[in-house]
Design a protein around this nucleic acid. Structure first.
Lengths: 153, 153
DNA sequence: GCACTCCTGACCAAGAAGGTCAGGAAAGTC
DNA sequence: GACTTTCCTGACCTTCTTGGTCAGGAGTGC
């Protein structure tokens, strides 16, 4: 139940691309790496994955760089996380609806389904445009507004 | 963003213990392993961790076995997951409130906080008693009632 | 004393995480 | 056409995690 560095990096780089979308010129990998303090060569691998998933586009050479394949308000955080981490909330590497629970753990399946659903309500709701503007969906602000949400356990 | 086999096993074994709580005799590891189809020696390590976290107790020898340290309605799934997997929803192995985001990813912190909070609303609400009785909290049934929640993406 | 069951540490193979390195292939510039 | 720039790709690397197994020791009950 943790978020990998890769996923964090991917979303941060994508946010940077979303912010640059108005510029009408590609953003170099190096600029992204500096802006978000991400190792350049590692970032290039991540951007390649995002490209393969149709989230970003790229051009090589001078004046080359990366840009979002779609408007920033049509790209969700969930999409980016899935692109680099794979399916969200799998249990033992299989989707929760495919597991058979026996004995007294029968209802655990519903719990894992609910876990996945609750992650989706957050991650599928937030777009890169939201992230850049800071105007996050109410589901996020409601959850994050509680003092309790900011303290570790 | 995945649930490990260890966490799944731990919750299943704990559910089995919760169901046996009325018996007033300890449950052997072997019985737990068979009931939930978990490799016995691996399960023993897991149970030991749960013991160290004060979630279960144990006694050796004939008539020995494991039992819950507290009533089943006072043990949450969140507690068990934390015992075996560590903190929930850490980003790059550090808690989201401790990360500094720069540039256009500033608001990503609130998103990760919301992710953690949403996981907590599910995992901290479900007790072992709920799990065994099948009477899950409304937050779970609401999330899991949608057809959409049961389909992979 | 003996059987039973938990307790503990060592070990192990495979894979993931988090990168680095070296070179190739387009694109633009002169 | 040469050269620079920037992305593209695969190979490699180290460390940690995952998901276990093995062997033996230590309480407990009869």
């Amino acid at each position: 139940m943790r978020v990998s560095a890769k996923a964090d990096y991917a979303v941060r780089a994508a946010a940077e691309l979303a912010a640059a979308q108005s510029e009408e010129a590609p953003v170099k990998g190096e600029r992204l790496a500096e802006a978000q303090d991400i190792p350049l060569q590692f970032l290039e691998h991540i951007l390649l994955e995002l490209k393969h998933h149709g989230i970003v586009r790229a051009r090589r050479g001078a004046k080359g760089g990366y840009w979002l394949a779609r408007p920033a308000d049509e790209v969700t955080v969930a999409e980016i996380v899935r692109a680099v981490e794979g399916p969200i909330a799998h249990v033992q590497s299989t989707p929760p609806e495919a597991i058979e629970y026996r004995g007294h753990s029968e209802h655990l399946q519903e719990v894992w389904i609910a876990v996945r659903a609750s992650l989706r309500t957050v991650l599928e709701e937030v777009t890169l445009a939201d992230l850049v503007s800071g105007e996050l969906p109410s589901v996020v602000t409601d959850l994050a507004s509680s003092k309790d949400a900011w303290v570790a356990r």
